[in-house]
Design a protein around this nucleic acid. Structure first.
Lengths: 125, 125
DNA sequence: CTAAAACCTGACGTTGACGTCAGAGGCAAG
DNA sequence: CTTGCCTCTGACGTCAACGTCAGGTTTTAG
């Protein structure tokens, strides 16, 4: 009876992760540098990832796009995949939520201002 | 009959502009460096602005916050205060509008993801 | 076996909107 | 006159998420 130690499944290399998530190989290495990814290593030293890392990297990208820093995302990830949180983390989550919401409001206001300008310029042939 | 040449009114100095618009003095100088502001000069070389420059600076800040670069804002300002536009400028305006709208959508998606995490962590005591 | 493709570490370069420091005037009040 | 605040020019520093190059090893395709 073979021993199955923590899902031995098909591991993928960094190129496949990058292509799958639509980012550069350099970016994936950078995420590791920031403590967001902790891949295993092959005997020769190449990084090996579980296939669902692609989903994780997409999530990371989404958080970056929302203006979160690497360290914030690093705080966030344990909540993401363990569900466990202390009060400080929950406060951080809500604070980031507020920040993003405020940013959305700012962008919508900017859109309105741009639309005013567009309306004016459309009126002037 | 006195000749009124382009509103001789009370001109203000850079500090008042900065405080009024809620930005740093350095920022106001930077805007000039980028061609967004063209203040007059006092005999001694100090910058003098019309009071409505405060409103203009607020607008500039709003555009920066929306992700526009200095050069885009520089293209935008003539439309803002003259209303005149060529087809290329109108295309640029619409392109920036699309970009901001896409960014809003991304942020809302990120908000949803964060809310998922928050929901999970609120379920785990 | 060999050449191409993918991977490695390490380190410097990029970009944009300012911050910050240095050194030198200018300007109203007491 | 001088104290104190504001302003000037010029120039280097910052921060974050990578880009990019160098020089070398590993894996894969034929």
């Amino acid at each position: 009876m073979p021993v199955t130690e923590t899902a031995p499944g098909p591991l993928i290399r960094i190129g496949e992760v990058a292509r799958g998530a639509g980012v550069s190989v350099r970016a994936v290495r950078y995420y590791e540098e920031q403590g967001l990814l902790v891949p295993r290593r092959s005997p020769s030293g190449q990084r090996l990832y579980r296939p669902d890392t692609v989903t994780l990297v997409r999530f990371i990208q989404q958080m970056y796009a929302a203006g979160l820093t690497s360290s914030r995302i690093a705080e966030l990830l344990p909540c993401w995949d363990s569900g466990h949180t202390d009060p400080g983390q929950r406060a951080m989550l809500r604070a980031e939520r507020e920040r993003i919401q405020a940013k959305v409001d700012d962008l919508r206001a900017a859109l309105d201002r741009l639309d005013e300008v567009i309306a004016i310029t459309d009126a002037h042939p």
